[in-house]
């Protein structure tokens, strides 16, 4: 018998929250067309979830290898700062005097390369130097924000660049661009991990690293790969965040988002102990978290309560995922 997918509880919670909104929040499912794009709370959810969704896609792979990447929030701040300083200060910026003019392609590439370099740095520390992932990535989490502040001189760099801003504010085929970016990243990662043996390699590395090495998997290269993917995802997320407000805020961009990403992964049914992972579950987890946020904001719940409400829903999902807890709930068999 095929067992239920691990993300079934997250999906259940998501449906529950959506049903609640259908009855209790007027206009939640209302969708209008405005300037050729869809406009409504549900669209907002799919738009706003993009940064955390991107982070948690990469995070899923890292967690599947028994690792964790705490630096993603700081990497977001760095790539945002790189992109913003290339746009706002084409002359005299500290980035080796690079001048990309207003080529959005090159600026996005610069942001992605920033993420990639950070990912490679993490990957090298974990795979070659054998530093525990939580320590290795903590380094960049702390230092990365400092680097971002250096790039931006401790200021919020604001810019007016409609072409770059359209990454977050524009729409294609009615849907906001961040949604399509997540679809693209998710599709690429899904194809890589499910249509090739890569996913299997990652799962075997997470299940038993020694066995994986013994059967000939190049575990070092594999680790380098998953951290690089996470870095690139974080780089993209950072640019969405910067494009959204047309400014790079080195202090606040991506702050604590690594925790949201880890939460999305674990709510989505991937165990932090590594091994099997579910990208679909992660996406559902991320959407669940964002749906809660949007619901809370739309309903105007008191700010003091928002975090508590979120925590309660996450707690419920986690408890339902725990076999021990479910076992305790089950009625005791009475001896015949």
């Amino acid at each position: 018998m095929k067992s239920m997918p691990s993300w079934i509880y997250a999906l259940g919670a998501l449906i529950f929250v959506l049903l609640f909104n259908a009855f209790a929040t007027p206009g939640f499912f209302e969708i209008n067309v405005l300037d050729g794009r869809l406009f409504g709370s549900v669209i907002d959810i799919l738009n706003r979830v993009a940064p955390v969704a991107l982070l948690s896609l990469g995070m899923t792979l890292v967690i599947a290898t028994r690792g964790v990447d705490l630096s993603v929030g700081a990497v977001m701040a760095m790539s945002g700062a790189v992109a913003a300083s290339l746009i706002a200060r084409p002359e005299g910026n500290i980035l080796l005097g690079l001048n990309f003019g207003d080529s959005v392609f090159l600026i996005v590439l610069a942001g992605l390369v920033t993420g990639l370099l950070c990912g490679l740095f993490n990957g090298l520390l974990v795979s070659r130097a054998r530093i525990q992932p939580i320590v290795a990535t903590l380094l960049l989490m702390v230092a990365g924000r400092g680097v971002a502040q250096l790039i931006s001189d401790g200021q919020i760099i604001t810019f007016s660049a409609p072409a770059f801003a359209s990454i977050a504010r524009g729409a294609t085929l009615g849907m906001p661009n961040p949604f399509w970016i997540v679809v693209l990243f998710a599709a690429v990662i899904l194809v890589l991990t499910r249509w090739t043996a890569l996913g299997l390699f990652i799962e075997s590395l997470g299940s038993n690293p020694i066995a994986a090495r013994n059967v000939g998997i190049n575990t070092g290269a594999l680790l380098l790969f998953v951290y690089s993917v996470t870095g690139v995802c974080a780089g993209m997320a950072g640019m969405i965040a910067a494009a959204d407000i047309q400014g790079a805020d080195a202090n606040n961009a991506g702050l604590y988002l690594e925790l949201d990403a880890i939460l999305a992964v674990s709510v989505g049914g991937t165990l932090l102990s590594g091994g099997r992972f579910s990208l679909v579950g992660t996406l559902i987890g991320a959407i669940l978290m964002q749906t809660l946020t949007t619901t809370i904001l739309t309903r105007g719940v008191a700010p003091e309560l928002t975090l508590v409400v979120k925590a309660l829903v996450v707690l419920a999902v986690c408890l339902l995922q725990s076999p021990t807890f479910l076992h305790m709930l089950r009625p005791k068999k009475v001896a015949a």
Partner: peptide, 12 residues
């Protein structure tokens, strides 16, 4: 921005 976005779709 996120709060204002939600405000403009809710009951207020």
């Amino acid at each position: 921005k996120a709060v204002a976005e939600a405000l403009l779709k809710g009951e207020f």
